[in-house]
């Protein structure tokens, strides 16, 4: 599903590479934690998958997209098959919960009758069926993140990328979000989650890829956060 081959990324403004000869493969349906200190290259890793960045060297494959080589015109197709969740939710404050989710479908030109059908379904999946008409500021942080997850998942992506999705949430709420991500993972969606949260990584016992200074320093099939340190 995701494959990086000897990928390096050097930003123009920096002498040190953000990623240094990284090769990783993630299968369809896997749940992978991407860990490492700030500046270790996690964000660059995720941005390369979305083609927000192009690698300086090496190749990146997501599903059957040759991400580094593809033409700009095909980038929207790639992004339509990847869902994204962030620490800061990134919801539109002037739109209701349902409108926020529907927005993701509207802007890729989905027909209205499809939208009317799938938005309530996905809201039910994330447990927000009663809050479709609320505005984001009327919701708790955990609920807002559920909206963001609903938006990321509504188009049934092959891959869900989560960049510290629990970074702004308390441990109990984080646990709920993790259960939701697990449920999404069980539908066959590959989940890649960058995190600093020891507790979550340790309790989930999923694959852990650790980056440090742009290199993969660990790749455990059933890892914990702090092993060997």
């Amino acid at each position: 599903m995701i494959r990086l081959e000897h990928v390096s990324k050097v930003y123009k403004t920096s002498t040190r590479p953000a990623l240094d000869d990284v090769s990783v493969e993630m299968d369809k349906g896997e749940f992978v934690f991407l860990i490492g200190p700030s500046g270790s290259g996690k964000s660059t890793f995720l941005r390369l998958l979305l083609r927000e960045e192009v690698p300086s060297k090496g190749r990146v494959y997501v599903s059957n997209f040759d991400v580094a080589k593809m033409s700009r015109r095909r980038v929207p197709r790639l992004r339509q098959s990847i869902g994204c969740v962030f620490q800061d939710f990134r919801l539109l404050s002037n739109k209701t919960v349902a409108e926020n989710v529907a927005f993701a479908l509207e802007v890729i030109g989905k027909p209205k009758n499809t939208i009317v059908k799938v938005v309530p379904e996905v809201l039910q999946l994330v447990g927000l069926e009663g809050k479709a008409d609320r505005l984001p500021h009327e919701l708790s942080g955990g609920e807002q993140q559920r909206v963001a997850i609903a938006r990321a998942f509504v188009n049934r992506p092959l891959v869900l990328i989560a960049d510290e999705p629990t970074g702004n949430l308390d441990p109990d709420t984080s646990q709920d979000i993790m259960l939701l991500l697990e449920r999404i993972n069980r539908t066959g969606t590959t989940v890649v989650m960058a995190t600093h949260d020891h507790g979550i990584v340790d309790s989930m016992r999923r694959r852990v890829v650790e980056l440090d200074n742009g290199r993969v320093v660990r790749d455990d099939a059933r890892g914990v956060y702090g092993v060997g340190r």
């Binding site: 979305l50 539109l92 927005f103 802007v107 890729i108």
Partner: peptide, 8 residues
């Protein structure tokens, strides 16, 4: 967000 969800 539009870019992210793959709007052309």
């Amino acid at each position: 967000i539009m870019r992210l969800v793959g709007a052309t």
